[in-house]
Every structure is written in C-alpha cells, then in structure tokens.
C-alpha cells in the first residue's frame, strides 16, 4: 500500500495522537511508515501538521498533490493544506473553527464553502455534535480517525486501529476513546468512498 495521509489543525487539538495511531496501525499491517510532526514553538496555538507516509521510502514530508486523505481538525487549516491533496483525495474536515485571538472575525463557513467548491470527496463533520456523548471534544482526534477509517479511504483495518487505541490510550480514557472511534466509523461508513 502506498498512501500519504495529512493531518492538520491547531496546536493542542490532538493531531499527534491520531497520526501515531495511523502509523502504528499501518505498521501492524506490515507496512513501512514514515511521518513528521510539528513540535516546539509552533505548537503553541499555531498551525500544526502531521505528514504520515505509508509504504513510502522517501522524505518525511508529503509532496504537493500527493496526499490521498486529509484529516482536518479545523476548516481554515484544511484550506491552508489543500494543495497537498490529490485531486480525487478524500478531505474530512471539522466544521467548527478555532479563532485566533488576533483574528476573531474569521469565518469558518467561508472555508467550508470553499472546500465544497474544490474537493471531489469532502466529508464535513461537526466535532461538537460528534463528541457530545463523550462529554469532551478531547476525543475528537480519535472520532475523526474513525470517520476516515470508516470511509474506507485510509486502507487501514479498523480492528488493527482499535488494537492500537487499546495499546496507547490510558485505561481511564479507553472506553470513551473506543466509543468515539466506533461512532466515527459509523459516520464514515455513510460515505461510500471506496
């Protein structure tokens, strides 16, 4: 399997855990994986990305136009990274914007409309709605991963991902994470991306 997956969002949204779960699951399926994260100063409320390259021997960063799947935790970040996507790539985006203190008049709806005009395969999810049953948007990272896996776009085996969630997540958050993932799977399943 050769697949480039891009995760993007804002520092603190939990993109790193999601990317680690993707990498670990792909490795459990026998794939070679490389990935790269934003760490350090840029993490503090800044734009963050994780590039996960499954099966690639190449560089840790995905070249423009080669990502097959995007997990966007924030609408403007989806737009910011859109040039990395293949034309028929699958973009899964959270509708809820994170507004920077310095730019509080930015409108997430405009970003979603733009994505609609550009993406052949767009899945818009609502993090608040999706996470309401679990009481915290902390679990959104695992939920959106569920959507991606459920949509079939990642090529990842859901049971392998579940195994990794069990291995990685601390005991007391495990049940909520599992439920969030399965809810995501169900939602993703409604989109028939092959």
């Amino acid at each position: 399997m050769n697949k480039d997956i891009l995760l993007c969002g804002v520092g603190g949204q939990g993109t790193v855990l999601a990317s680690k779960l993707i990498a670990a699951s792909a490795m459990a399926m026998g794939e070679t994986v490389h990935s790269a994260e934003t760490i350090g100063m840029a993490q503090r409320g800044g734009s963050v990305t994780s590039h996960v390259r499954i099966g690639a021997e190449g560089a840790p960063l995905i070249p423009k136009g080669e990502a097959a799947v995007m997990l966007a935790f924030e609408p403007a970040e989806a737009v910011r990274n859109l040039s990395y996507m293949k034309e028929d790539g699958v973009v899964i985006v959270n509708r809820i914007p994170v507004k920077p203190v310095t730019d509080s008049d930015y409108d997430g709806g405009v970003m979603i409309d733009y994505l609609k005009s550009k993406c052949k395969n767009l899945i818009v999810v609502d993090a608040e709605e999706l996470c309401r049953p679990f009481g915290s948007s902390k679990f959104f990272n695992v939920a959106i991963l569920g959507v991606a896996v459920g949509s079939g776009s990642t090529g990842l085996d859901r049971d392998k991902v579940l195994d990794e969630i069990e291995r990685t997540v601390p005991e007391r958050f495990l049940e909520a994470n599992r439920q969030a993932f399965l809810t995501g799977i169900q939602l993703g399943g409604n989109y028939g991306v092959k």
């Binding site: 804002v10 520092g11 100063m41 840029a42 993490q43 503090r44 409320g45 800044g46 734009s47 070249p63 423009k64 136009g65 080669e66 403007a76 737009v79 910011r80 859109l82 040039s83 990395y84 996507m85 293949k86 034309e87 790539g89 507004k99 920077p100 203190v101 310095t102 730019d103 930015y106 405009v110 970003m111 733009y114 550009k118 993406c119």
Partner: peptide, 21 residues
C-alpha cells in the same frame, strides 16, 4: 509540473502566531 488542487483563489486565511497558553 503543477500537481494537485489549485488553491490560488483560496479565501484569506487567519494567521496563527504562537501565543502563550
């Protein structure tokens, strides 16, 4: 060779300078 989605017409994106938590 230009590959991928053309985003030259994207709406203005918010700046996200790092901030104190």
């Amino acid at each position: 060779t230009e590959k991928g989605i053309d985003v030259t017409d994207a709406p203005k994106l918010p700046m996200r300078p790092p901030v104190l938590c």
